[in-house]
């Protein structure tokens, strides 16, 4: 009896989480524009989506920004995680405190703050400002993932390599980086998803005419939702599903899972 109750409870929550997604997927194959009647199977909204230049440009923008910003953030964040370890505890705490600000602050405040800064320095809003903003909020996630890996055993190995005559650069590349790799990968993946998913900060720092998937949806919803957006949702959901399954599958062999 108790087991059934548990099962039903989980079932209800899962239904609550997935019902909206299932609705979008079903409607994306609907022949008519109606949101309440399914009149027949059709792929025309997918056609419309792929031939819509605005949607395609938004998809391209989203991914170019996410890739460049997450790679930049990962490089800066990884070096920082190592560099911070060489500092005194007081300095470390100070810097990590500042690192936490974008994580804890509300997105709307971060977005506005960056907007004001760009305008104060006379930087006009465009693709570049979105990129800079995304790097800013991605770096803390990288540091959060990489820093726990910079531990005593890595440091001892690094010192041993130096004692044996390795140059700092050689020891860093051959000893430290391989040890940090899982953390770096997790940071990269986390930044990438955060960047793809971001709306609020992009909303404030984008210039006119630059759209990511999120900002495009926001402006489209105001004029009226077109089913081509359902097609886009379905494709995104399928991609996320495949990616998560892959990551889960790949990390099965190892102890630490990359996501979460």
């Amino acid at each position: 009896m108790k087991k059934y109750l548990k099962f039903i409870y989980i079932g209800i929550v899962v239904l609550f989480l997935y019902l909206p997604i299932i609705a979008l997927v079903v409607l994306s194959f609907n022949e008519s524009k109606s949101m309440s009647v399914f009149s027949g199977f059709s792929l025309k909204w997918y056609e419309e989506m792929f031939s819509n230049r605005m949607i395609m440009q938004a998809v391209i923008n989203t991914f170019t920004i996410a890739i460049t910003a997450s790679v930049t953030a990962t490089i800066i964040g990884t070096f920082a995680a190592v560099g911070i370890d060489g500092m005194k505890t007081k300095q470390q705490n100070l810097i990590l405190g500042f690192n936490n600000i974008p994580l804890l602050n509300a997105d709307i405040v971060t977005g506005i703050a960056l907007l004001l800064t760009f305008l104060m320095f006379g930087i006009s809003l465009n693709w570049g400002t979105v990129y800079l903003a995304h790097v800013t909020f991605c770096i803390p996630y990288v540091i959060l993932s990489v820093r726990p890996r910079v531990n005593k055993s890595v440091n001892t190995l690094y010192e041993a390599a130096l004692d044996l005559g390795a140059s700092r650069f050689y020891a860093f590349v051959k000893i430290v980086l391989p040890e940090l790799r899982p953390g770096i990968l997790a940071g990269l993946l986390l930044s990438f998803t955060m960047s793809v998913d971001d709306f609020v900060i992009t909303h404030f720092t984008r210039g006119a005419g630059i759209n990511t998937i999120s900002t495009l949806i926001y402006s489209q919803v105001k004029v009226g939702i077109r089913p081509s957006l359902f097609a886009l949702s379905t494709i995104i959901f399928a991609l996320v599903l495949v990616m998560l399954l892959l990551v889960n599958f790949l990390s099965k062999g190892r102890k630490e899972s990359v996501i979460y």
């Binding site: 997935y18 979008l24 998913d197 709306f199 939702i225 957006l229 949702s233 996320v240 998560l244």
Partner: peptide
């Protein structure tokens, strides 16, 4: 179960909210 509960979180936030509008 973790997988089930995380998956929707990885979908675009705007799309998830739009889905409720559609519903």
């Amino acid at each position: 179960m973790i997988f089930l509960f995380i998956l929707p979180m990885w979908m675009n936030f705007l799309l998830r909210t739009m889905a409720w509008q559609v519903l």
